[in-house]
Design a protein around this nucleic acid. Sequence first.
RNA 1: GGGCCCUUCGUCUAUCGGUUAGGACACCAGAUUUUCAUUCUGGGAAGAGGAGUUCGACUCUCCUAGGGCCUACCA
Length: 463
Amino acid sequence: MSPRPVVTRFAPSPTGFLHIGGARTALFNMLYARHKGGTFLLRVEDTDRERSTEAAVAAIFEGLNWLGVKPDAEPVFQAARADRHRQAVMTLLETGHAYRCHLTVEELEAERERARAEGRAIRSPWRDRVHNDPDAPHVIRFKGPLEGETVIDDLVKGQIRFRNIDLDDLVLLRTDGAPTYNLAVVVDDHDMGVTHIIRGDDHVNNAARQTLIYQAFGWEVPAMAHIPLIHGPDGAKLSKRHGAQAVGEFADMGYLPEAMRNYLTRLGWGHGDSEIFSDAEAVSWFDVRDVVKSPARLDWAKLAFVNAHYIKDADNERLADLVRGDIARRGETLPDGVDRHLATLIELLKEGAKSTLDIAASLEFVIKTRPLSLDEKCKGLLTEETRARLSRLAEHLAAVEFQREPLEAAIRAFAGQEGVGVGKFGAALRGVLSGGSPAPDLATALTALGRDEALGRILDAVS
RNA sequence: GGGCCCUUCGUCUAUCGGUUAGGACACCAGAUUUUCAUUCUGGGAAGAGGAGUUCGACUCUCCUAGGGCCUACCA
């Protein structure tokens, strides 16, 4: 085994947002590097100038940053290294590991169809031919071996074998002289000293061809680990209709980054019975070798459960800021009175919340202004008898400290005093306090409202 | 068409030839509770199918079925 310090990298192509599967790949790369005391790098694969956009680069950086996946060095932009790539191809040409292919688009298409019909890999007739005009338009293709086989010792899949005859002569340099992905990855990974390539399952086939390129250069082939993709709840490829694909969408849905990290790490990887674990634990336990071979499905219910756990632990001021953001995104603002002691309210309301959006929703009954309009169900609860009882309750409560415990006790004491169970007026109390919106238990609701507002709401309804 | 990969409860997973196949989420039931929620207790739930290797297979091999990825001058 190589004694070199571990270097991993995440290499997204900036053609869109940061996909949740990509985010997990990035996370695994970082965890593995940290676990081994190595280095985690980021490289933007923007060799496709047509499809790469600056907006996508920004979205990816933002997504990674939000998730807390931070590279140990400045990101490398692949397109900036095109000269180096071209130079590398020239050496391949000189050593006979590449050739100039003058096939036209039409000829290539015909050749491709023929190959497919015969059930074999496509090969260019220019493999062993030289054009009399070397300046005629052409691409440069890799000249792979026609015999033998290439074996990948994949860290998660195990040994994978390919017959070289099945591997086609991929394009290294396009007609316009631009390097292609398969060439650029190899050169860059080598130049960056990458020791472990951890990437999506969809690259296994490339692994064989890239191995051949490494060998043509005479370079050491890095260890590889191909991790399965994340599918939607129904097992199909994750798409729009499953709710979300981009990490930014998860952020907007009120998920906490630490919850996301925990959930994503646990998806396709496990450490015994551990379900909830810290970043430090993840780093000390994680090894790509323990990643599961089969694709995993995104389970919203479990994500919600994990998120609820982290919300319970989260700092209230921080949650308050997130909730403000959620509300602002809806184009709404919090009343000053509520905003001022938001963190205190959140401590009262975050129990059971599965996302910060839930917290925002639970704020609804607090935000309402007097006099509340009660829904039909609440109105129905207000009989003559109950009104009278509630107004006696208001008096009773006037002298009580507005904190959960004393209020809880006071309500019970009042019930005893009235000679009835709390059930006799509890629902009605809730009704006049919330108007029908979801609200927490009575003592908590009362505390959240504060003495003046709470008493005011009761009096409004009974007078 | 060709190449490669995958297959344990509904879902995420444990098991590294010998287990009553374990845990978590979800679900169901009961308890608590002023509703919902929370909390607590209990419950149902799995080795795709078929051969083989072996004293013994979820675990190893092969076949079948199902699913996925690749098959670009995209990455």
